[in-house]
Design a protein around this nucleic acid. Structure first.
Lengths: 215, 215
DNA sequence: TAGATTGTTAATCGATTAACAATC
DNA sequence: TAGATTGTTAATCGATTAACAATC
């Protein structure tokens, strides 16, 4: 806890991909993998993979490679997937509902306790067991339910107001922000942005300018 | 057209952010901006900004800075936002509907001509004027309507099958993929992934390991 | 003209790749 | 033991920052 962020962001962003492929291998019943084979799957070089993993410890064995189950668990632990998180979603439109509905997040330990909205037509509805509540109740709800992650799926106009409620609650440690806006938050709160606009514009750049690109 | 991808991916991924802030400045009626001021807004260094922009031409003026309107238009042109694109969405669940509903994409020139699904309960419904059609009709629809961009919002199990239809249509030039899977496509087709899982796991990493992180 | 700020080159920093000794 | 593959160091490559002459 609270140790320094010593490992670079570029390394961190590759970990989830390792985790995904290791999970797939696990499901297939494969119990051994070399950095070279992982390289073929992920597209990263074998050298890079070994170096990435060695930031966190020596999980492999010379002459053998890596044990899939062990490595999957270790990478999961590094990513903080060895526990559950309570979350709430602010903004109950299609995007909010899509996130609430996504089984994959729940399986990974991210529990959506409630959605929130200010639209009276939505308040009271249920999305897969999860109720949509009045956003005015959100701050108290966060306090009462040990919510650590706040998800913003509102229009950009409301994003900072929502962030301010998260901050005020003094419980939210991380914000997953889908609004195309850069939030102002105190340093101890982590923000991860999903800027769909930026992703789409990158696609259109490559459409116009290049023949070859993937990822 | 078809020129080489000479500018690095890291530069390209910063362009949409410039574009967004320039748009905001434009709306505010500000017509002049220095690299230093842009630096404050975007968080990139002034030096980096000047170097990024000079990959594409000298848009500034010594002693003055950049004209907001001119730079906004130029960056938009670089990103391929100076024209319209026809798109279709495969997968008409919440996520597909969210993308179809998002006004921001339409404003940027990305027209959703149709959604597709294989669920008979969804086929025939309309999302904001846009009809959900049987996925079996998708390939022909793409051909008949000059669709260049295919959007995948299906479960990961179906993602490659959808990609294969896009490929077979011989019209799709770019795929915007929301499924947590890496698609196999021929080299001339561009794939831009939105891997929400990876984004969420990155957030949880920083929650566990670090106090300070933003973006 | 003087002040400001770009465009661009050079210096630094960090990330990736290559190589190989260690060792299972 | 011989073969394989890691962990780790050194070499390369690329991206960022610093600096400043050019010039509006």
């Amino acid at each position: 806890m609270n140790r320094e962020c010593k490992v670079s962001l570029t390394v961190i962003r590759r970990l989830p991909k390792y985790y995904r492929y290791l999970g797939e291998l696990l499901n297939k019943g494969i119990n051994r993998i070399s950095s070279q084979e992982l390289s073929k799957l992920t597209g990263f070089t074998a050298s890079q993979i070994r170096q990435d993993l060695n930031n966190f410890g020596g999980f492999g064995q010379q002459g053998y490679g890596y044990n899939v189950e062990e490595l999957h668990r270790q990478v999961g632990k590094i990513l903080g997937l060895d526990r559950d998180y309570n979350t709430v979603i602010a903004g109950s439109g299609n995007l909010g509902q899509a996130v609430a509905n996504y089984k994959g997040f729940e399986d990974a330990g991210f529990k959506v306790l409630s959605l929130f909205d200010k639209n009276p037509k939505l308040i009271g509805l249920k999305i897969r067991e999860v109720e949509i509540r009045d956003v005015d109740l959100m701050e108290q709800f966060i306090r009462d339910n040990d919510v650590e992650i706040g998800i913003i799926t509102t229009p950009k106009e409301n994003a900072q107001d929502i962030a301010d409620i998260f901050i005020k609650s003094e419980r939210i440690k991380g914000i997953w922000n889908f609004a195309p806006a850069d939030l102002k938050v105190p340093e101890h709160i982590v923000v991860e942005n999903v800027h769909l606009n930026e992703s789409l514009f990158t696609l259109s750049y490559f459409l116009k300018n290049c023949d070859i690109y993937n990822s």
